[in-house]
Design a protein around this nucleic acid. Structure first.
Lengths: 242, 242, 242, 242
DNA sequence: AATGAATGAGGATTCATTCAT
DNA sequence: TATGAATGAATCCTCATTCAT
């Protein structure tokens, strides 16, 4: 593994360092997630990472720093995924035009796709672990919010709000406060999952998540699509919710 | 201290016992909320409760039992309050009738009242502490969910669903799945608070909570009040649908 | 040991506590003396004291507090002994008078007695241990000086100065600054011991200490007894000066 | 840095080695003085010396060897200074003769000069640090005495004794045991400084040191100059002491 | 020769729990 | 029953020292 070719010394070395650092961060997140901050012990983290106890200290300082670093790493990974998803919430005009008068409902489809994916990510074990640790330690480490969400949560909402604004401008949603729309869209999606997944301790079947996503989008569209004459969101979807 | 009057021995004594037990439970919840389960120490709990360390053991057993008991006590208190609120979600017919054609919108008003109060309780420091501890320790104490929500969360949703069903039957809401309606109503209310209160570490001003409640109810009504052809969700059009 | 008779509860209990506390302090001083502050370990102290490690913490707090307490205890014991000695430096007039014209020299005798005893105490292993620890840790614990000497060293010098002043007033020493006299008397006594005992690591035989005491007193008297014209400092001439 | 001139390689290199070795020794002494032996850590020493940790091991072996070397280096430096001073204690006959019957007192002057300088060196921070470390570690490293004083302390006393003997032979001091005279001269000089400088933690003003030196010499001369008729040490100095 | 990473042992401290009163 | 003292296990962290480059 250390190499097909001898390779430039410096790079090989720092690559080793980086790998080890990453291994420690991963191990730390796993152990913290399992035991909580206070319950986690450095020894186990080192063990899981496959390094000596002191190596952990060399790389990432004391327990508190390690915790911050591990949370930040996990946080930015999760956030990046969420943002990437949110950015996919676009509906190109051609799709709309081409289906005018037909059965398809490209807005609904797109929302449901994005919703389903967001929900999928939110129910990811790592996401739940992150959220649980955040809740658990937020009072003792108030900086965590900034470190983990790092404007990320807000950015998610803002990104969604951007898309909502565009949809609204395009006449695909009624005029509305896009930030509020984003906030409520997220609430309708993720709100029900807390109870359904029992705070992340029960794996939610795909089908159930789809149901929730579908219901969220239906309600959202009912509320946010201009209730023009005959504007029941789309006849075909009604029976499912009712 | 309890000796001011001789008093019926038995009762005085057990009253003292009960008081002490309650004091310990309260102290335990406070300390656990501040330090987390692993970080809390029995000594501090005893200190806060004003009893000797060993007395804690006498009354409530070891740390784990104490934690369960404290969480259960706090949980049922919070749940009781929430249930009481949910049960208030009724709209008497006379009110509806008497305002027919007028400006008032008793359904909206009622929903907003209940929503505002639910939000108020959800933002209570004790509620947040409970939720944080639940998130924090759920993986290590899976029984907590049952002990704390004790079907309570579900009961809240069911109670709300009952009310929704009645409103729907009364024609005040469109035909719908009342459980889903309850779930989404709660989601629209409480979902936004997580970010806004920064996981309960930022006190949310009353005005902001009202805004959220108002927005939630508006969206909820747009989606759940029958959008008859040409039905704009504005309050003035309600009588027509009812 | 804890008692022939059951004895009054309270007293027996606190006596036990006090004994244990004292045992810990003694053990601590011993271990600190052997290993130095940083080199000493709480475990060994507990072992030597015959208690559990945590009991040490219960009684005397952390390592630093324990160190202070142990040093203070040892210091005041040593200081008390020294002061008691210094106070013995008196020459009653009758003794002086009754020996007039004779061979005896009560001032010299008294000084030598006190000097010998002071030297004896200064060479005590405990005294050396105390002095060594003081030197060793004074830069890291500047408060130690106050805690250990606690005006004690100064009080020793002052007490000696008092005696010197009386001797001077009585005409047994020439007029002089009594504080300076005391300081130099101590210097002549103890100064040579540092090298001779190799900083306290070599036991100094009694005979050698006596020699030093004798030399110190001789030099002191030569300098501090009025050198009247023609006064050779030889003992035989003493009566003439007195 | 060493590259200004190509320079004979061998010499430049070993010069570099020597410089580095010296830098490590200096750093070690500083750190040991600040933290004590057990409290010092190799890392800090390396840091202060500006080299990598392992370089310290390469040059000077393990912690114990390093300590010995650092103490020995500091010790011989201090000792050399002291010896150089002691050797200056000479009074040339011409000076004595030329001032016979006059006011000047060349013996006193010389003793005071030397005393003042010795005291100055004894109060040097490095001297105190050395003495403190010696006291601190003497029981764990009995060889230190030999390594640091390396017969140095004794040599100081012997050198002083030589001078005393010469003075005595020259009739400038009364007949006496020169070793004892040297010992007591040193005791009178340095004895008082321990308390006055608070074991070296308080900087003693020049004036105070001069006072001590003056008093020491006065007492020494009273005791060691033949108390021939009118032999009060020097009229001018009396008022000061009296 | 010099460096930086890695290690394993050891020590201070905290804590849940038990005993004696 | 209530208490305060005592315990032993467990945990974070530091340090002297070695290895690979």
């Amino acid at each position: 593994m250390t190499a097909a070719a001898p390779a430039p010394r410096g790079r090989a070395a720092s690559r080793g360092r980086i790998d080890k650092r990453q291994a420690i961060l991963d191990a730390a997140f796993t152990v913290f997630a399992n035991r909580g901050y206070a319950g986690a012990c450095m020894e186990e983290i080192a063990e899981v990472a496959g390094v000596a106890k002191h190596t952990v200290y060399n790389h990432l300082g004391d327990k508190e720093s390690l915790f911050h670093a591990a949370m930040e790493a996990a946080g930015s990974a999760v956030m990046a995924e969420n943002l990437a998803l949110a950015e996919q919430l676009t509906v190109d005009q051609s799709a709309v035009a081409s289906t005018a008068g037909g059965q398809a409902d490209p807005v609904r489809t797109r929302l449901e796709d994005v919703g389903r994916l967001l929900l999928h990510q939110c129910c990811d074990p790592r996401s739940w672990a992150l959220r649980r640790l955040l809740h658990a330690e937020i009072t003792r480490f108030p900086d965590l919010l900034e470190a983990v969400w790092g404007r990320g949560a807000d950015r998610l909402r803002q990104t969604l709000a951007d898309r909502m604004a565009r949809l609204s401008l395009a006449g695909l949603l009624r005029p509305c406060d896009p930030v509020e729309a984003a906030e409520q869209f997220l609430a309708l999606l993720t709100g029900p999952m807390e109870a359904r997944s029992q705070l992340g301790t029960r794996p939610v079947p795909d089908a159930e998540r789809e149901l929730v996503a579908h219901a969220a989008v239906s309600t959202f569209l009912r509320a946010y699509r201009d209730a023009a004459p005959g504007a029941s969101p789309s006849p075909s979807s009604l029976p499912a919710t009712a």
